[in-house]
């Protein structure tokens, strides 16, 4: 009896997975980022404990797990956004192409140029649409015709160009929530980062806007390494190649329970905790 219910529940994901066209993750896929024994502390509180995972290049890796288990915190260690909050400490390493981004002589600004981020709430600057996208390239000294081309290409890549091409000089804040989020994606890819981190990018969006962002991610994964934190398990099933499931230890530290190909995590999880979570049964 229980078996049937469970397989029925898993059916949702089978349908979601059928929409997913998983990339071939062959053995020779290059590892883009490698997380090793990562601990993250806010003051004395350990928010992340001993996370180890390899993120392959040009693919989408999803991080799922219940609220407060440290998904966002983990994601924010990947481009050192966690540094911004005072009294934080990191142990272990996060490497990008073999280079530890927490190394003493690493310039955090350069790390963030290579690892971009899209946030939970769309956060366009209170500037025009053009200036929003041009912001990053301008930091690198790009101007004139080249800048215009980058802005147009980035907006096209973010599937926003047709909607905004006639009002590039209007405020980015005048756009709808979904458009704002795509503007933030355009802004991020305008600096051609190697990795794009997405922190629940659809949680503030309606289903249609969510669909558009997912389409966008699937297009972008051919060129970028994407790591997405999501509450929406079907979203993870739809877009990602690999899925990481996180949970909270009794001491409230976030740990990585299971990490593997998305199809396996959703259809044949190795750990009971994972199965309980994705079938909607906790504890």
């Amino acid at each position: 009896m229980l078996e049937t219910t469970q397989s029925e529940r898993l059916g949702i994901f089978t349908r979601a997975l059928s929409g997913n066209t998983p990339q071939e993750t062959s053995a020779d896929t290059k590892t883009k980022m490698r997380v090793q024994n990562l601990d993250f502390y806010y003051g004395n509180f350990r928010a992340i404990a001993g996370v180890t995972m390899d993120i392959p290049e040009k693919s989408i890796t999803a991080i799922i797990g219940s609220s407060g288990c440290g998904k966002s915190t983990l994601l924010r260690t990947f481009n050192r956004m966690g540094d911004l909050v005072g009294h934080t400490r990191v142990r272990g390493s996060v490497t990008l192409d073999g280079e530890n981004i927490y190394d003493r002589n690493v310039d955090v600004v350069l790390v963030r140029r290579r690892i971009g981020m899209v946030f939970q709430r769309p956060n366009p600057f209170p500037k025009s649409i053009f200036d929003n996208v041009a912001y990053g390239p301008r930091l690198l000294g790009v101007g004139g015709k080249a800048l215009e081309q980058i802005v147009e290409q980035s907006l096209r890549d973010a599937a926003l160009w047709d909607e905004v091409k006639d009002k590039l000089h209007q405020s980015g804040l005048a756009l709808s929530g979904g458009q704002q989020q795509r503007l933030c994606v355009a802004r991020t890819i305008a600096v051609k980062p190697e990795v794009i981190l997405m922190d629940e990018p659809c949680s503030a969006l309606d289903p249609i806007a969510t669909y558009k962002i997912e389409e966008l991610m699937i297009q972008l994964r051919n060129e970028y390494t994407i790591v997405i934190v999501t509450h929406n398990m079907q979203q993870a099933a739809r877009v990602s190649g690999l899925t990481a499931f996180m949970n909270m230890n009794p001491d409230r530290a976030g740990v990585l329970v299971e990490f593997g190909p998305t199809t396996q995590i959703f259809t044949n999880p190795a750990k009971k905790e994972t199965e309980d979570y994705i079938t909607g049964r906790f504890g």
């Binding site: 481009n79 912001y135 991020t188």
Partner: peptide, 22 residues
């Protein structure tokens, strides 16, 4: 909003550029 600051820093802007331009 903190998001504006983080958005700028995530694009590889320095603290100084973020302050002045955003």
């Amino acid at each position: 909003p903190r998001g504006l600051r983080e958005g700028s820093l995530a694009l590889g802007a320095s603290n100084w550029k973020t302050s002045v331009q955003v």
